[in-house]
Design a binder for these strands. Structure first.
Length: 824
DNA sequence: ATTTTACAAATTTTT
DNA sequence: TTTGTAAAAT
């Protein structure tokens, strides 16, 4: 604490409200942080401040977030304040990743092997499906998804299978849903998970909570280690998380939670907004701080959002304000159908780019459901506006990748019967359903895992499996076992390569070299190379750490061969990707493809900000969406309203909202009304008053039984069905560029000469990953593992590219190939 | 055992 | 509209 103490430097950048929250390091603290108010800054400053003013070991500061991204961002920021070394020691990460790490240490106390693997949602759904089938329950009543969500709800509320079936209220609900045997499925499901040595997502929380009860000694070890605990996005915590945090503060009461009740949008997944409402009484006496100064958005946006959220009854009163300029009013775009909606939004973006010199990356287009992305994506593409969709199926969701991953899982955890089932006949080995069913029966009666059963040479005598089948099973089993035997002595990268080649998946795909199969083979290879990357990264981290440690003892840099790297197991890799969300993996893929319009759902926009935000599909039924048969609950509506609040507050400079009067839903036409939320924004923040005629009272222009000459009655009856070049009546407000919108953007893609056509971004583009629009036949590109090659074919529709490399011609998905311009 | 074909169903958000 | 599952054919 010298004259220019580091703590002074930390506090200097904070406003009075923020500073107060940072200074209160002891005891329970609730920080109500409005959107754009510098919540992350408070959290990071607080951690830095604690490190600067106390002798706390960074490892005993626990910071929990919901996304990996948020955790990394915080770590990054703290690193600049207290140094990389110390920041790296913090116990910081998502609930799931931090807890999974702890559980691995104490797994034996819960009857799990420390090598337990983690099922993602689709893995667990597959298991549920099988159980439903086994029990001969028609999946008409027992929809796997519905059952899964019931089970998940139970787990989030720490209701065990036994408690579930003994709970009359729960059973009543199931009966009324016509699925009275859900509890039975839950029991079987949990039993199977346990036998397989597997946890699903929710189990990570359940078992963490269980650990506190099962072993007070272990819990003391864990909880007493964390002197300071911080929780981000507290409004999104569920009951299990609440309980765990409670238990973690048993010894040190220094808990700081940060959140905004107005941004609670995950109730559907168990988040309990009451957690933040009740914090004061739960942790009394506690200190409450409000940070309400919005540094992100204009006055118009902040006040418009305020006027909207005031329609919610249950909320913590707060007055968010902006000292920024008034800003542009909110424009509402009305369109005939989704195609026109997309075109109008596209034109508005083009106009802004021209008049405000905005970059593509200044724009975000938000929507309620993923299915809405199609129309706008296509429209942008037609106008040559580069864009990325952040969501959708991630790399790790592709079947071939999941197949390979199930090999990985089986090798890491040979008791995972689900992994066995998935990999045993992939590629086709002639081991079909009947054989596996017989094997399953044998395994059950012998009380062993499928893999163990498959290894037995006396299979024909203990089951109905014929000799031929037994032979195939034996050889599969011995392949897996040979891999298992070297699992702990070989690093993940070598093991992955070995598994990949022994499985024969890549070879099988290449035997029948269709475009699709080739890309599948490439994806499997890509997965293997991502394991290689992972190991390299871990080694690099380790090396860095060793170096920084040896700095003090003034030893010269170690020759790299002398470094004894720790073993990086395949299980480490599996854990890493199991807890990776799809949006995050997507982000990593296009890490540096920056100057693009971003398309995403409102949910995935949380925590982000953009100068210009478009929110599409502002229609009753879509946003707010009502799913359950017509009637909408007050709570659901309030959550939808918060969701819209989140969407609005992403914008820095301007927001535009769009809706259409005709929309194709599930393939059939509908005529929705504009969203009620549009009326809830105080009209003084709108560019122009809402057209009155669109709402109820009279018939909303039902053109019902007029099959007319038009085969598709919901399409605009007027001349051209909104082709790319028919911009349709441009609305007054948007600085319209009229008919020639197309030529605005130079065709940066399809470069006839060199691909870096525009001078502006050329310099930084040497290492940039190329998108499908950056490619053209004949150009040379570079791939991480295949080296330099020449593009020989390009399929814009399927987004695939064929490249002739020194090792031969490869056909790859552009999104996953990570091609770059060759370095000269 | 695998491929093809036909038909039905279901469409939110995700750590 | 697409997606997945069930039955039927190879």
């Amino acid at each position: 604490m010298a004259d220019h103490s580091p703590s002074e430097a930390i506090l200097r950048n904070l406003d009075p409200q923020q500073k107060a929250a940072v200074l209160q390091t002891e005891g329970p603290v609730l920080v109500i942080a409005g959107a754009g108010s510098g919540k992350t800054r408070v959290l990071t400053s607080r951690i830095a401040y604690i490190l600067a003013t106390t002798d706390t070991d960074p490892a005993s500061i626990l910071a929990l977030t919901f996304t990996k991204k948020a955790a990394n961002e915080m770590k990054e920021r703290i690193a600049t304040m207290v140094g990389r070394k110390r920041a790296a020691r913090l116990t910081m990460g998502t609930f799931h990743s931090v807890f999974a790490r702890i559980l691995r240490q104490y797994a034996h106390l819960l009857g799990y092997p420390s090598t337990f693997t983690i099922y993602d949602t689709s893995d667990s759904q597959n298991l549920i499906k099988r159980i439903i089938k086994e029990k001969n329950l028609g999946d008409k009543e027992y929809k796997p998804k519905a059952v899964q969500s019931r089970i998940s709800d139970a787990k989030n509320n720490l209701i065990s299978p036994q408690a579930y079936v003994n709970n009359p209220a729960v059973m009543d609900t199931d009966r009324s849903k016509k699925m009275p045997r859900t509890g039975e499925i839950y029991l079987a499901y949990q039993k199977a998970l346990r036998e397989n040595g597997v946890m699903d997502f929710d189990d990570i929380l359940v078992n963490m909570a269980l650990l506190a009860r099962v072993s007070p000694d272990a819990w003391r070890e864990i909880a007493s280690r964390f002197r300071y605990i911080m929780v981000d996005e507290y409004q999104d915590t569920n009951y299990a998380q609440y309980k765990i945090v409670r238990a973690l503060t048993l010894f040190h009461k220094n808990l700081c939670v940060v959140g905004d009740d107005s941004q609670s949008i995950y109730a559907f997944r168990g988040a309990n907004i009451q957690n933040i409402f009740n914090f004061r009484s739960d942790y009394a006496p506690c200190k409450v701080f409000r940070i309400e100064h919005n540094y992100r958005s204009t006055k118009v946006i902040v006040e418009a959002a305020n006027s909207l959220i005031e329609h919610n009854e249950g909320r913590i009163p707060k007055e968010c304000f902006s000292t920024g300029e008034g800003g542009e009013k909110i424009n509402i775009i009305k369109a005939f159908n989704e195609m026109e909606e997309a075109v109008l939004v596209t034109q508005s973006i083009q106009a802004r780019i021209r008049t405000s010199f905005a970059a593509y990356s200044d724009f975000a287009i938000l929507y309620r459901t993923n299915s809405q992305s199609r129309a706008i994506e296509e429209s942008l593409r037609r106008s040559n506006i580069p864009n990325v969709i952040l969501s959708g199926t991630s790399f790790y969701d592709r079947t071939e990748v999941k197949d390979m991953l199930s090999y990985f899982r089986l090798v890491v955890n040979p008791s995972d019967n689900e992994a066995f089932r998935r990999s045993v006949n992939r590629p086709a080995r002639g081991i079909g359903d009947t054989t596996v069913a017989a094997l399953d029966e044998a395994a059950r009666s012998l009380g062993v895992t499928l893999l163990e059963a498959a290894s037995r040479e006396d299979l024909p005598s203990v089951s109905s499996i014929k000799n031929a089948g037994a032979l195939k099973l034996n050889s599969f089993a011995s392949m897996i076992r040979s891999l298992v035997s070297i699992r702990d002595t070989v690093d993940a990268d070598d093991l992955a390569r070995l598994i990949s080649s022994k499985s024969g998946m890549v070879v099988a795909y290449k035997m029948e070299p269709t475009m699709e199969n080739l890309s599948r083979a490439a994806n499997v290879e890509e997965l293997v190379s991502s394991v290689v990357d992972f190991v390299a990264k871990r080694h690099a981290e380790y090396f860095e750490q060793m170096q920084s440690q040896s700095d003090s003892s003034s030893s010269s840099t170690l020759p790299s061969e002398a470094v004894q790297y720790p073993h990086v197991g395949l299980s480490d890799f599996l854990e890493d990707i199991a807890l990776l969300s799809s949006a995050e993996s997507k982000e990593e893929e296009n890490a540096d493809s920056d100057n693009k319009v971003k398309l995403m759902t409102v949910h995935s926009a949380k925590g982000l900000e953009f100068p210009y935000v478009y929110i599409m599909g502002m229609e009753d039924g879509l946003f707010p969406s009502y799913l359950p048969g017509g009637g909408i609950q007050q709570n659901d509506l309030e959550e939808e309203r918060r969701l819209f609040y989140v969407a609005l507050t992403r914008a820095e400079k301007a927001v535009e909202l769009s809706y259409c009067t005709h929309r194709l839903r599930n393939g059939n036409p509908e005529t929705p009304s504009p969203s009620r939320f549009l009326r809830e924004i105080s009209p003084r923040f709108l560019v122009s008053p809402l057209p009155r005629d669109d709402w109820g009272s009279d018939s909303p222009s039902r053109r019902s039984p007029s099959p007319s000459p038009f085969s598709k009655p919901w399409q605009r009856p007027s001349s051209s069905p909104s082709g790319p070049s028919s911009p349709s009546p441009v609305r007054p407000s948007a600085p319209a560029c009229a008919s020639t919108g197309k030529k605005l953007v130079p065709k940066a893609s399809l470069p006839s000469s060199s691909s870096s056509s525009s001078s502006s971004s050329a310099s930084s583009s040497s290492g940039r990953i190329l998108g499908v629009y950056d490619l053209s036949v004949g150009m040379s590109v570079e791939h991480k593992s295949f080296g330099r090659g020449v593009v020989t074919a390009l399929d814009m529709g399927k987004q695939m590219v064929s490249v002739k490399f020194p090792v031969g011609e490869k056909t790859l998905m552009v999104a996953f190939a990570k091609l770059r311009l060759p370095q000269d």
